[in-house]
C-alpha cells in the first residue's frame, strides 16, 4: 500500500456490518412460535381496541406468521389482520382487496360451528357494500348474498337478527325503486313478527320506523314500528324526546289523531323535561288541550330548567 493512502479497514468493517444487518432482512417467514404469536396477538388487540389500526395491522401480521394455520391463534389473528387491513389508513384499492381476501380465506376455511364465521360473513357483506375509498364501487347484490347466508344458517341467533337488519338496509340502495325498498322493509317486519324475542328487536323496529317514513312516506307503518321500539325500550334513552317529537308530528299531521299526538308531546314534557323540545312540546300540548279539553288533562309536571339546582 502506498504511503499516505487511507487504510481500507474502515470501509471493510462497515461493509461487514451492513452485510450482517442485511441478513435480518431476508424473505424467510418467522418460525412457528405459538407463545410469541399470542404475545403479538394480545398487543394487536390492545392497539385495535384504541383504533390504532395501522399498528394493529403489523402486530396481527406478526402473530399470524407465527401461528399454526387453522389453529385458534391463526384464526383470531387472521380475523384481526383482515379487520385492521380494512380500517388502516389511508384506505386504498390494494388494502381493501387484501382485507377482503383475508375474510374470504376465513369464510372458506372456517367450519360452520365457528363463532367467527357469521361475523366474517357479515364483515364481507359490509366491506362490499361500503364505499371504502374514493372511486370504490359498491356491490349491494353480492353483499346481500352474504347477509342471507348468515340469516338462514344461524336462524334464531342474534347474528341472524343483525343480518336481517342488514338485508333491509341493503334494500335502501334502490332508492329509485320504492317497491323494492318496501319489499326489503316488509321482509324485516315479517322476520321480527316471527322472532319477537330478538335481543335487538328494539333496534330493528326503530330502523323500520325511521325508514318507513323517510323512504316510503308510510306514516302508519312508521308510527307502529316506532311504537314497538318505544315499548321494548329505546337504545338512546337520553334522546327519547327526539322519537316522541317525531311520533307526535306523525300522529298529528299524517294520522290525524291529535289526542295521540298530545300523548307524545306530554311524554316529552314529563319524561324528558331537560330536552330542547320541552317548551315547544308544552305549547303544542296546550294548544291541543284547548281543542280537546275533555280528553286531555292539564299537565301537572311543568318543565323545570336544565339545571336541577335552579
Amino acid at each position: 500500500m502506498p504511503p499516505g493512502h487511507p487504510t481500507p479497514l474502515i470501509p471493510i468493517f462497515l461493509l461487514a456490518v451492513a452485510a450482517w444487518l442485511l441478513t435480518g432482512c431476508g424473505g424467510r417467514a418467522p418460525a412457528l412460535d405459538e407463545e410469541r404469536a399470542l404475545v403479538f396477538l394480545s398487543d394487536a388487540h390492545t392497539e385495535a381496541s384504541v383504533f390504532n389500526y395501522n399498528r394493529a395491522y403489523d402486530l396481527y401480521g406478526q402473530a399470524r406468521a407465527r401461528a399454526e394455520r387453522g389453529g385458534d391463534t391463526w384464526i383470531e389473528s387472521t380475523f384481526g389482520l383482515a379487520t385492521a387491513g380494512w380500517h388502516r389508513l389511508p384506505p386504498n384499492r390494494a388494502s381493501i382487496l387484501e382485507a377482503r381476501g383475508l375474510f374470504e380465506e376465513l369464510a372458506e376455511l372456517l367450519p360452520e360451528n365457528s363463532s367467527y364465521l357469521p361475523r366474517v360473513l357479515l364483515n364481507l357483506g359490509r366491506i362490499i357494500e361500503l364505499r371504502n375509498f374514493p372511486g370504490d364501487t359498491v356491490d349491494p347484490e353480492l353483499a346481500r348474498t352474504y347477509y342471507e347466508r348468515v340469516r338462514d344458517k344461524w336462524e334464531g341467533t342474534i347474528h341472524a337478527d343483525e343480518a336481517a337488519g342488514r338485508i333491509a338496509a341493503n334494500a335502501l340502495h334502490y332508492v329509485d325503486d320504492p317497491e323494492r325498498v318496501r319489499a326489503g322493509l316488509e321482509e324485516l317486519e315479517s322476520y321480527l313478527e316471527r322472532r319477537p324475542d330478538s335481543p335487538i328487536a328494539n333496534v330493528l323496529w326503530y330502523f323500520l320506523g325511521d325508514k318507513y317514513w323517510f323512504f316510503l312516506d308510510d306514516a302508519e307503518k312508521s308510527f307502529a314500528a316506532l311504537e314497538r321500539s318505544v315499548e321494548l325500550g329505546l337504545v338512546e334513552r337520553a334522546r327519547a324526546w327526539h322519537t316522541f317529537w317525531r311520533m307526535a308530528r306523525m300522529a298529528r299531521e299524517n294520522l290525524n289523531d291529535p289526542v295521540l299526538a298530545a300523548s307524545y308531546y306530554a311524554r316529552i314534557v314529563q319524561e324528558a323535561p331537560r330536552s330542547p323540545r320541552v317548551h315547544e312540546a308544552l305549547l303544542a300540548y296546550n294548544e291541543l288541550r284547548e281543542r280537546y279539553p275533555d280528553e286531555l288533562p292539564e299537565l301537572e309536571s311543568l318543565p323545570f330548567t336544565l339545571l336541577r339546582n335552579d
Binding site: E162, V203, Y206, E236
Partner: peptide, 16 residues
Amino acid sequence: YYQILQRSLTLSNGNN
C-alpha cells in the same frame, strides 16, 4: 356493538 348497530343501520350506506 348492538347500540352502535342502530346508528349504522339508520345511516343506510349514505342512501338517506
